[in-house]
Design a protein around this nucleic acid. Structure first.
Lengths: 134, 134
DNA sequence: ATAGACCCTGGGTCCAACACACAGGTCAAT
DNA sequence: ATTGACCTGTGTGTTGGACCCAGGGTCTAT
C-alpha cells in the first residue's frame, strides 16, 4: 500500500495531481485508520499511468472517468475511446484554425504599431494603437 | 446614463460580461440612488468597445486592466501595449506548436486503433488501445 | 386595476486541471 | 527532547465569463 507521495513517484505525477484525481473520483484509495492518510494499491499505479498516457493523447479527465466506468462495468471501453478521440481531433482542429487566425491578427497589429508613435492620453482615446485597429 | 442592458446593446457585449467587468474593476459605474442600478456614461461605452477589441487581439482582462491603469494615471499605455502583445505572440506560438504535436499524436493513434479489435476487460488492462501507445 | 412578461440587482455556483497556502502530523537524526 | 525536513488533509485561487436564483421593479395590454 502506497501513500500519495510514494504513488506520485512511482507513477510520475505530482502529489497535487494525485490528490486532484482522488477528489474528482478517478481514484478511490482506502484510508489508514490511524491518521486518515490515503492508501493506494497496485491497480492505482496502473490507473495513474493510464491517466497520464490518455491525457497526453488529448483525453480530458472526464473522458477518462467514462473509460474507467466502462471498464469497471465489465464493458470494453474501446468503441467509446475511438469516438471520444475523434471528437477531440475535431475540436483541436477548430482550435488550431482559431489560434492561427489570432496569431495572424497579432502579428499584423504589432507590425503596424512598430511604426506608430506613442499617443499621450487625452481623456478621449484610451490607446490609439488598439483603437486604430479595425 | 445607461443601464447594464443598454450598455450591452450599444457596446456589443452580453449583460453578463458587463457585470463581470464591473466585478473585477474594469468598469466603475455610478449608481442610481433610487434603485441601486449601475449607471454608465459615454466613456464606459468606449471602454467596453476597447475591451472587446483588445480581447480579440489576444489581450487578457488583466492586461486590459494594466492598460486602463496607465491611461488613468496619465501615462501613455502604448509601450506596455507593445510589450504585452509581444508576450502573447510568443505564448501563442508555443501553444500552436504544442497543439500541432497533439494533433499529430491523436491522428496517429486513431489511425492505428482503426485496425485493432476491441479488447474485453480482463481485470488487468484498462484499455489496451491506449495502453499500447508508447 | 391588474395580469403577464420582461428587466434589474447582488450573490452564488460551475467549467479544467491543477497549484498553492495553511496548519498540523510524523519521522530520523542528534 | 528537540530540531528540521517532509508529509498530510483541506480550502482557496487561477481565466473569462455563463448560468442560475430569489426578490423586486417596470411596462404593456386588457
Amino acid at each position: 500500500m502506497l501513500t500519495v507521495s510514494e504513488l506520485s513517484k512511482v507513477a510520475q505525477a505530482t502529489p497535487d495531481a494525485i490528490r486532484h484525481y482522488v477528489r474528482i473520483g478517478l481514484l478511490t484509495p482506502s484510508r489508514n485508520p490511524d491518521n486518515g492518510y490515503k492508501l493506494f494499491n497496485g491497480y492505482d499505479i496502473k490507473k495513474v499511468k493510464f491517466i497520464c498516457r490518455a491525457k497526453g493523447l488529448g483525453f480530458t479527465l472526464s473522458d477518462i472517468q467514462i473509460i474507467f466506468d466502462h471498464s469497471s462495468a465489465g464493458k470494453s471501453p474501446c468503441p467509446a475511446v475511438r469516438d471520444i478521440i475523434q471528437q477531440r481531433i475535431n475540436e483541436n482542429r477548430d482550435r488550431l484554425v482559431e489560434l492561427n487566425r489570432l496569431q495572424q491578427r497579432m502579428d499584423e497589429a504589432l507590425e503596424k504599431w512598430k511604426s506608430m508613435p506613442d499617443g499621450e492620453p487625452d481623456g478621449n482615446a484610451i490607446c490609439y494603437l488598439i483603437e486604430s485597429t479595425h
